[in-house]
């Protein structure tokens, strides 16, 4: 059953279309990550769920009800902002209790205290409850922010890049913790990020957004292996997928209508036959190495083992692991395996 859904939703700001005809269903207990660069409409999509923006067209559903016309307070959601969401004039306890004290909730102060303490323990901030919100470190602040969303047990959690203002180490810690908490509570989360690593590790499904349109919604692995188009292919994987002209790297059997070939760096095989290439640079990253190759004038990234002996300037042979190449047509859509022979012409 869909816990939350957008149905053919469009949102414009003046002339610009921020979200265009987006439909997205989120199941109960599912963790959906919206991925895309700045300006792709991720945050607007999230704010449409929250009711902080109202769509020109389409419906928003939460917990089986059409909430399109409802105010944010009536939607039973929680929102975690990128920053600024803690009230500086309150203590941590007061911040955590704030959603529980909202008019219409009528919880006893003992119940509020119990709930806040539970959440503080879960997030390991119980020793900071009496501190002012401004006296916390960045990581603690973001924990409290997430805690403020968790105290209320809403039907839907919305998170707008909650980890992006933190440093790398903290981000990793909190990411792991967030996933653990989500599993524990069985929470339904829509999460916005531009960080592919966050998307890959957190998501049950990733929604790839481009210029207000939902390009593809699928499991992370599915998007990685079978991207809907070049844009989706480029969103996941580091270094990015290599895009080559037809016929490069001695790739045969291109389906009709194919224009571009996509090859993931880990699928480039060195010295297993193929065409001549020159190593331009090589970066050793510890567990792996990345080589930049010059193959007949185009640059190709290859992901190699940590112990590779390749050196800059070396002449090698490069090829592609058979069957690993992706083909894209003129409108940048991926050509399916089934469409490989002959009947792909209608794709144009």
């Amino acid at each position: 059953m869909a816990e939350a859904a957008l149905r053919k939703v469009t949102k414009r700001f003046g002339e610009t279309v921020a979200v265009s005809d987006v439909s997205l269903e989120v199941s109960d207990g599912e963790f959906v990550v919206l991925l895309g660069p700045t300006g792709a409409g991720k945050t607007t999509t999230l704010r449409l769920f929250a009711g902080l923006e109202h769509p020109e067209e389409g419906q928003v559903e939460i917990a089986g009800h059409d909430v399109t016309q409802l105010a944010p307070a009536q939607r039973d959601i929680a929102f975690v902002f990128q920053q600024y969401s803690l009230y500086p004039h309150y203590t941590v306890f007061e911040n955590l209790a704030f959603p529980l004290k909202a008019p219409g909730r009528r919880l006893s102060s003992a119940a509020i205290k119990k709930r806040v303490t539970e959440i503080a323990e879960m997030l390991r901030i119980e020793s900071k409850l009496k501190n002012r919100a401004t006296e916390l470190s960045g990581g603690e602040m973001q924990r409290v922010s997430i805690g403020r969303a968790l105290v209320r047990e809403p039907s839907l959690f919305l998170m707008d890049e909650p980890l992006s203002s933190l440093d790398a180490k903290l981000r990793e810690d909190l990411r792991v913790e967030l996933k653990r908490i989500q599993r524990e509570l069985g929470a339904t989360i829509v999460y916005v990020t531009h960080d592919q690593l966050e998307a890959m590790t957190l998501a049950d499904r990733i929604g790839v957004l481009a210029e207000g349109e939902l390009v593809q919604v699928d499991a992370p692995r599915e998007i990685y292996e079978r991207p809907a188009n070049i844009y989706a292919a480029q969103r996941l994987g580091s270094p990015q997928i290599n895009l080559l002209e037809l016929g490069a790297l001695a790739i045969q059997d291109a389906p009709d209508g194919a224009k571009t070939i996509g090859v993931r760096p880990e699928d480039v095989v060195i010295n297993g036959g193929g065409v001549g290439a020159k190593v331009l640079t090589i970066e050793h990253l510890g567990v792996e190495s990345i080589a930049l190759l010059d193959v007949a004038g185009s640059q190709v990234h290859a992901l190699l083992g940590a112990r590779t002996r390749l050196r800059e300037g070396e002449e090698v042979m490069a090829s592609v692991r058979p069957g690993a190449e992706l083909f894209f047509d003129r409108s940048e859509r991926r050509l399916d395996g089934a469409a490989r022979r002959g009947d792909a012409a209608h794709e144009d």
């Binding site: 929250a50 009711g51 902080l52 105010a71 944010p72 307070a73 959601i77 929680a78 929102f79 902002f81 990128q82 920053q83 600024y84 969401s85 009230y87 500086p88 004039h89 704030f98 959603p99 909202a102 008019p103 219409g104 909730r105 403020r148 209320r152």
Partner: peptide
């Protein structure tokens, strides 16, 4: 004062005026 404060309060179940009174005014 960032709007996020009021938006957070509104999402948390407060009206716009309550958000103004409880969040914006003290700041």
């Amino acid at each position: 004062i960032p709007r996020e404060y009021e938006e957070a309060a509104v999402v948390d179940g407060y009206t716009r005026f309550q958000a103004f009174y409880k969040v914006v005014l003290p700041q």
